[in-house]
Design a binder for these strands. Structure first.
Lengths: 230, 230
DNA sequence: TTGCGCATCAAACATGCGTTTGATACACTT
DNA sequence: AAGTGTATCAAACGCATGTTTGATGCGCAA
């Protein structure tokens, strides 16, 4: 007559994922939304319908759970990186750069951290938090996510500048391009500083086009300047 | 024979600033270093040699103290903004842009939050935290600090593009330039992603020069493109 | 049936936080 | 001398956090 004491068993029957998986899902969403520090274990467990102790039992603590989430992010991110890198490396370098920017900016500007359904905006939200307030996992993420993209951009820019990867102008151009792309990440502070901050899909697309035009002209200019004495 | 119970009185005699002022100084340093959220009242009071209750007594809470710090930041910032805006508005627009970038980037890249001694890098560290994790004071700071600079840049860019302030291309170019400047802010995440991140004064100066060259070429390119039908 | 390991639970623990309290000493006025 | 307001103090309050504990039910092997 009384309610069953182990109701979670019945819930697990309706949604047939183990507690572990439900915790990872809930954690992914919340870590992406609020970052590691501002996300509480209790909130994750409430969202997952699990006990507070479950995180320590399954993941040996909050950081362990975060590590699991980041691991999956890195795994999923490999696909995203492939989407950023144009399939045909024989295309002209400026076209490869355009492809990168056009694919990258909408991901950066994504406002929803939906875990399901392909559009993996949550990964970039997570990385943004990691950049603003690094955790012990920051070097790992930087290695696995940022460095491959930087390498890709560096190759393109070395080609466009007619120089080699280690030319400091390459690094500076990479920074300029990455900075412009990242600047379209949702940010309350910038939004109230510049009214009319781009939000719609077409505005974001226009911004990407702007970045490509702007940067390609900038690169051509830099290419004409003093190449450092080899 | 016993130690005097009100030793702070003696300390106040050696450094003749009131507790209030010492609190503001300590708070400025810590808020700039760690941001509002990650700074604790207890740490501020310890650094100021004051009692934990002093913050509530003098400033009516942590946020009140932060408000005082931000108020002084905004006041000091007006000078900085003047330094960014070239004295002679009759100079060509590209020279005014170069002056802005050359003065701005070293401030952004400042690593020490020294409150004393002119070089007010702490203000930009504080603003960076406010941008990453906005407090209720964010709109105020945005109004007083960011908007004047955006207006200044917008005027320059409207002139360079041969258009008016409300042209969306102006806003996009402003974002591109601000993004590049801000990207040289100290950031552990980027530093471990790109080895050889610029840190020395000469590297920062070279970065500023790069941003100016890169952006002026980009602007010229954007100027040739479709001006939206007036 | 017994025993063992696994997963879960409610409850408590330890810590850190911003804030409040009530007492106390001092400077100054009346 | 008595009274008053200001500034400071140690201590505690209330809350949120990550983590730990010991008990409980369950499935399964011996």
């Amino acid at each position: 007559m009384t309610a069953p004491r182990y109701a979670h068993r019945h819930r697990a029957a309706t949604s047939d994922v183990a507690t572990r998986e439900r915790l990872i899902d809930a954690a992914t969403e919340q870590f992406a939304e609020f970052g590691f520090r501002r996300t509480s274990v209790r909130d994750i467990c409430r969202a997952a319908g699990a006990n507070v102790a479950a995180v320590n039992y399954h993941f040996d603590g909050k950081l362990g759970l975060y590590k699991e989430v980041v691991s999956r992010a890195i795994q999923a991110m490999r696909e995203t990186t492939r989407a950023l890198i144009v399939p045909d490396p024989a295309l002209p370098a400026d076209e490869r750069l355009r492809h990168y920017v056009r694919a990258y900016v909408p991901l950066i500007a994504a406002r929803e951290a939906q875990v399901q359904g392909g559009r993996a905006g949550w990964i970039h939200k997570l990385m943004r938090h990691e950049s603003a307030e690094p955790t012990p996992l920051a070097p790992w993420i930087a290695d696995e996510v940022v460095k491959p993209r930087v390498r890709h951009l560096s190759r393109i820019l070395a080609e466009l500048l007619g120089t080699t990867d280690d030319d400091p102008r390459v690094a500076r151009c990479v920074i300029s391009i990455e900075a412009q792309c990242l600047s379209y990440a949702p940010n309350k502070f910038r939004e109230c500083a510049l009214q009319g901050w781009p939000t719609t899909t077409t505005q974001i697309a226009a911004a990407a086009e702007h970045i490509a035009d702007f940067s390609l002209a900038g690169i051509r200019q830099i290419a004409t300047e003093h190449q450092p004495g080899a």
